[in-house]
């Protein structure tokens, strides 16, 4: 440990920045993935299960191959399988996408725990991170600005999706299908196929989010690895009004606010620590109430989305 400075109260903002970067990535990936899925008119509430399975499979493959990146790839593939299954079964008349999602959450979690038992003990290689703190001599700043490659990929992905939804044919196709199945059919699109692929893409990103948890931060596989990040991130998409860049900001906010509790304690403020830990939820709820309005209710919501109909 080189050059540990006494940073005192500066530790709080630093922890929030560092925490925002470290903790936000799983929220970012799941919410971007769900954003694609929901824009196509489906909701996959089961991404929590996909995330946990991604965490397990990514870790297991990384242990066996010695490569964290192959682990990430495996997690994405596993996520695609879950997404394809969800996307496929939901095309049948009468099948409720929300309900299937909840059952898939159970199934994904169960399969991950089932096959993950032998991987609780072994140690897998970690994903690399990039140092953006080279300009500072302070070890804590360097540590806070250790940015994982997936975070940067996530940022670019958010930008790409924002542009893609607005300006590409694929983006337009997804939006049309999401807004009206009938209109999409009328112009010769196949809504089922678009939704199938959108759900698969969402699953892939959720799988990667899981791999981030197990291969980078906190960086180990165990059955308590997710504390509901997958479910929360799905909800954050609604908060973000189905806009990819909003997903990015919402994830940062959530991660940063989550770091507040430990950071305040580290400078000696520990009264009512449970209440500080609730900061991300209180903050998000407050913003949600402030930015909602009964009249323009969910104007940006995809028209076919069951949860906002």
């Amino acid at each position: 440990m080189s050059d540990v400075a006494d940073i005192g109260l500066w530790g709080v903002p630093l922890a929030i920045i560092g925490g925002a970067i470290r903790v936000s990535t799983p929220f970012l990936f799941v919410s971007l993935g769900e954003c694609i899925t929901e824009r196509s008119g489906r909701i996959n509430l089961g991404l929590e299960g996909t995330l946990i399975f991604g965490a397990m499979s990514g870790y297991a493959v990384a242990v066996n191959t010695g490569s964290a990146w192959i682990g990430v790839l495996a997690a994405a593939l596993a996520g695609i399988c879950f997404g394809l299954f969800h996307g496929w079964v939901c095309k049948f008349k009468g099948v409720n996408d929300i309900a299937i999602g909840i059952a898939m959450m159970l199934l994904g979690t169960g399969l991950a725990y089932f096959f993950g038992k032998p991987y609780i003990q072994p140690v897998a290689p970690d994903l690399p991170s990039i140092s953006f703190g080279w300009w500072s001599d302070i070890e804590q700043v360097q540590a806070a600005l250790q940015v994982n490659a997936l975070f940067i990929i996530g940022l670019f992905l958010a930008l790409l999706l924002a542009w893609g939804f607005k300006s590409t044919k694929v983006g337009l196709t997804i939006r049309v299908v999401g807004d009206s199945t009938d209109a999409a059919r009328a112009i010769g699109l196949n809504p089922d196929r678009v939704r199938l692929l959108s759900t698969a893409a969402g699953g892939a990103l959720a799988g990667i989010a899981g791999a981030y948890l197990s291969l980078y931060y906190p960086g180990s596989w165990n059955e308590g690895i997710s504390s509901g990040q997958g479910l929360m991130a799905v909800a954050l998409v609604i908060f973000a009004r189905w806009k990819p860049m909003n997903c990015f900001w919402a994830s940062l906010l959530f991660g940063g606010a989550g770091a507040l509790g430990p950071a305040l304690q580290s400078v000696g403020i520990s009264q009512g620590y449970y209440l500080f830990f609730a900061a991300p939820y209180v903050l998000t709820l407050g913003l949600l109430i402030a930015t909602s309005s009964p009249n323009k209710a969910m104007e940006s919501a995809p028209g076919e989305l069951s949860i906002t109909k």
């Binding site: 931060y217 430990p262 580290s266």
Partner: peptide
Amino acid sequence: CQVIFTGEWSLAVKEAEATNALIDQGCD
């Protein structure tokens, strides 16, 4: 000795955040 309470017996991300916060404050 600096202490951070996580509030739960098992909560991976919070434990990692707490550890980082301690080290940021110079605990070695």
